[in-house]
Amino acid sequence: MAELITYREAVSRAIAQEMRRDESVVFLGEDVAAAGGVFKATKGLLDEFGGVRVRDTPISEEAILGAAMGAAMTGMRPIAEIMFSDFLATCWDIVAVEIAKTRYMTAGQTNLPLVIRTANGGGLRFGAQHSQAVENWAMMIPGLKVVAPSNPADLIGLFAAAVRSDDPVMFFEQKSLYPTKGEIPAGEIVDELGTAKVVRKGDDVTVVALASMVPRAVDAAERLQSEHGISAEVIDVRSLVPLDTRTILSSVSRTSRLATVEENPRLCGWGAEVVSIAGEECFWDLDAPLTRITTPHIPLPSSDSLEDEVLPSVQRIVETVAKMTG
């Protein structure tokens, strides 16, 4: 029996599902235990699993991720929370230079089964230091898997896959999605990393989106159909590393047009890689320039009127895609 839950509730369900299954899964972060997280996404976990497995930490991002790494190397499966993804900059050494490289440098002697989950992205008027979409930072580093779900069911399933993976996974929760609702199936939910999903079928153009840009792309597709008679296929990338190029490229080959919708600022957003691959591998199938719809290359402003203007909006997606197919 399906159930309707919020993206926020999906977080604690996902963690609980994995902690019940596997004693070696532990969870640490700032304000995650007693307070249930600053976004209240981890409420109830301390009560169910106790203070040894669910643990509040000092404000020490390097120590949080270092502890997760050391524990992962020695038999545990830690989940570490970085409260806002912007704070990853304070511990980026541990992420990019330690966690990502250690298996390789040691010729496979070390296992790093850990998940770093973090509240990512804009839309909540938090200003430039609490709103960045930084999944592209992680995507650039060999050795990190990168996931960003757009709905509760995917969140639980991909999170389970991340915890069960022997590789380090960066798990980006888009914080404006926390109150949004979606249906989840009954029972255990386990998905597969590296799989994109066609969330709306279409024939004229492929629109590839991630996290909070997915519902916007779907809304835009409905308007493109009703207002312009354009049939847009929408793909939720879900996982940037590994990247399901097969699903994306087979769609692009069929529709002959590709637009990406990215929250990242323009330069080196994840879509740049997607259009580059499509340009190399689908060039002869294309009928329109490969097009990226991104946040402009600016820090995010706080004011709601400004933030709404610069994040890719349904309106901007509709206008841009309509022009491509015109």
């Binding site: 390097e62 120590a63 270092g66 790494m69 050391g70 330690e98």
Partner: peptide, 16 residues
């Protein structure tokens, strides 16, 4: 960098 990581290994021994 390895001081926090060593701390994590010690945490793991404590947990196990």
């Amino acid at each position: 960098a390895h001081l926090p990581i060593a701390t994590g290994a010690a945490w793991s021994s404590q947990l196990r």
